[in-house]
Nucleic acid binder design. Structure first.
Length: 696
DNA sequence: GAGCACTGC
């Protein structure tokens, strides 16, 4: 068998890096074993770049509390490192190795790949856990893949994650809220469990940040010096990837219209470059549909419509349409995929040789003062640009055409994007930390601290919901119940209130629908028809109540996908609604809350919505001709979104679920209310002002 | 009169 390092064996050679304590290991020459007796999979494994670092990784993890692995795509680190560590004995004695991923699909595919390589049944030695699916066996699972969100949830039952001997955090450079949160919490756990090992997989630029973060303070190292062989300074190991070179082309002059530039670049690649598929990065559905149309028209008008197979790709697309990008393009045709950021990390397309990068993406920004999350087109970071370019070099050398100048790249683009935590509403994060017993939220040790304003806003919201008390501690039972429910705290509060209002069956459906992206399909070109169909579900009280009709119809159709497409509903999303609703049912039962239907008493349902969303109350401006509302809390000018059932109906008082800001602030998912219910539901929030306050 | 991407017991 292959050798691997065990304590006491001869150590691999260590080379000190000149740049301040970073360690690099020179890999021992791999003994040229004949390969007899090894399966094809085993031989493929050994060809992965990471394989020659096997001993080094085992050694580093043994001796360092934290190991940072910098690996390019194709290094094999995600599938191999858990196996190396299992071989080194880290999963013996009932312990487990955890490996987190930011996405569900990655968890599933990596887990089944590793099970296959180890020649075991998925769900036994190798298992995985994602929301709605736990494919593990508590008695036999040694390596467990899971989303970082699931691991965070597991911490609520087991704050020190005692089941695990090693936690591998993959894709840490993506800097999602849950990864950042997990890293902060893992650092805390490490101080309590010195035997726990962390492996952080990250991109080059981030390695130093991670390393500094996990280097415990001097004082602390003194306290933890029980095991004097254990090095508290993180080790950094760099593993080369396996990808082809990508030639980068910049524009000589900046363009004002990147959409037009993208279209003409596609056409010139098609006429001048060797065969190979093209991937275009644009910002959103609008741009993508427009580009698809321009390209289609152009190829038609030139009578050369056999040359290109043009496919859009974004998450809002029905599953079937999304899958088209994975099929082979018709013989002799060049495939052109026009995509959002979904193709940057979430989906990998094989066969791409040319990438066209607009240099922009839509990004979320949160303004804690106005309490509004905004989606804006913004320049991407250098890291993103690099990631996009890399998509051209997976099968053979490729080319990337950047629709901006080299000067723009060098001088205008940030090295990395702003971590999601600094761009988001933090209510969910704060309540989760509170549930884990972290009281000093502002003093928490973050990899990148969010703004104090955003933290304070989150604390205020939670306080007004009655989830936190005057000492900013979780209230009993509401605070703990809300924390337990895996939804936005305002939705969770609505759910809990519905139990005492006797309408939990209805509210669970509404909660599930509000927790997914829109259930409606985008119906460009068939707008009128889709609007008419939507109106068949409409209820005068508003969108929330209409969801109940949609859900009922979906169940009556036998959860039919055909029924969904006939009604312009997204089938995948509707299935997700059913799953979430089921999960919530089980959870409420566990919390000892009653499930009850209000049997058509819509007033109770509206009151429950207000119990969670009273802060989003708006009043129609007197004499307003264009449907202008003002928020009660901040007197912000807002309008009902055109997709809402209540658009142009304009009831005097409404409560909205969320705001989207484009040219105006639009309220999405709106329900009509009686203003007296506001003071009833949240007397602490709304003081009833008698004179001068026109309550209708 | 309009819609980036992920995700959670």
């Amino acid at each position: 068998m292959t050798q691997f390092w065990r304590p006491g064996a001869e150590r691999p050679q260590i080379l000190d890096d000149e740049e301040g304590g970073v360690l690099f290991y020179s890999a021992p020459q791999s003994s040229s074993s004949s390969g007899f007796g090894y399966s094809i999979l085993e031989r493929l494994r050994k060809r992965l770049p990471v394989y020659k670092y096997k001993t080094a990784i085992q050694f580093l993890v043994e001796n360092h509390a934290t190991t940072i692995v910098v690996g390019e795509t194709g290094s094999g680190k995600t599938t191999q490192i858990p196996q190396f560590l299992r071989e080194a004995g880290w999963a013996e004695g009932g312990r487990m190795i955890a490996c987190t991923q930011p996405r569900r699909l990655a968890v599933q595919s990596v887990a089944s790949r590793v099970a296959e390589e180890m020649d075991v049944k998925l769900g036994e030695e190798v298992g995985y856990a994602i929301r709605f699916e736990n494919v593990t066996n508590p008695d036999t699972t040694k390596i467990k893949f899971l989303t970082d969100g699931v691991l965070l949830r597991e911490m609520m039952d087991d704050p020190l994650l005692t089941k695990y001997s090693i936690i591998i955090v993959d894709e840490a450079h993506e800097r999602s809220i849950s990864t950042d949160m997990l890293l902060g919490l893992l650092k805390k756990i490490q101080r309590r469990r010195s035997e726990l090992r962390l492996v952080i997989s990250s991109a080059t630029i981030d390695a130093k940040t991670m390393s500094t973060f996990f280097t415990g303070s001097k004082k602390h190292q003194g306290l933890e010096a029980k095991d004097d062989k254990l090095n508290m300074t993180p080790a950094i190991l760099s593993v080369e990837g396996k990808s082809f070179t990508v030639e980068i082309h910049y524009l000589e002059e900046p363009v004002s219209d990147y959409l037009q530039a993208a279209v003409s670049t596609v056409l010139s690649i098609h006429s001048q470059e060797a065969p190979g598929d093209i991937l275009v990065f644009l910002t959103g559905q609008d741009d993508i549909d427009a580009a698809v149309q321009l390209l289609t028209e152009d190829t038609r008008s030139h009578g050369k419509n056999s040359g290109l197979s043009i496919l859009p790709l974004y998450s809002g697309l029905p599953r079937g349409d999304q899958e088209l990008v994975f099929s082979n393009s018709p013989r002799g045709k060049r495939k052109v995929v026009i995509a959002t950021n979904i193709a940057e990390t979430s989906l990998t397309l094989e066969g791409i040789v040319y990438v066209i990068d607009s240099g922009f993406s839509k990004q979320k920004f949160f303004n804690p003062i106005s309490d509004i999350e905004n989606l804006v087109v913004a320049p991407i970071s250098k890291a993103s640009a690099r990631q996009r370019a890399g998509r051209a070099g997976r099968v053979r050398p490729g080319k990337c055409f950047r629709l901006y100048t080299e000067d723009h790249y060098v001088t205008q683009m940030a090295v990395e994007g702003v971590p999601e935590m600094q761009r988001s509403n933090l209510v969910s994060l704060v309540i989760q930390l509170k549930a884990l017993g972290i009281d000093n939220i502002l003093g928490f040790d973050w990899l990148a601290p969010p703004s104090p304003e955003a933290m304070i806003r989150a604390l205020e919201v939670l306080y007004s919901l009655g989830v936190l008390d005057d000492d900013a501690k979780l209230t009993t039972p509401i605070g703990f119940q809300v924390a337990e429910i895996p939804l936005d705290p305002m939705i969770s509060k609505m759910v809990i209130s519905s139990c005492s209002l006797g309408c939990s069956e209805e509210i669970l459906t509404i909660a599930a629908v509000l927790s997914v992206q829109s259930i409606w399909m985008s119906a460009r070109g068939a707008q009128k028809e889709s609007d008419e169909l939507k109106r068949r579900f409409a209820v005068a009280e508003g969108d929330h109540i209409s969801f109940l009709n949609v859900y009922k119809g979906f169940l009556q159709s036998g959860k039919s996908s055909k029924w969904c497409s006939q009604n312009f509903l997204n089938y995948q999303t509707m299935k997700k609604v059913v799953e979430i609703r089921g999960q919530l049912c089980r959870l409420l039962n566990r919390l000892g809350l009653t499930l009850k239907s209000c049997e058509g008493d819509i007033k109770a349902v509206r009151k429950a919505v207000i119990a969670g969303f009273f802060a989003n109350a708006c009043r129609l401006e007197a004499y307003s001709v264009n449907g202008m509302y003002k928020t009660v809390r901040t007197s912000q000018e807002v309008y009902i979104h055109p997709s809402s059932i209540l658009h142009r109906v304009n009831p005097k008082w409404v409560v909205y679920h969320s705001l989207v800001s484009t040219d105006k602030h639009y309220m999405r998912n709106v329900i009509a209310i009686n203003p007296s219910w506001l003071t009833e539901a949240a007397p602490h929030f709304y003081h009833f002002q008698k004179p001068n306050y026109p309550v209708s």
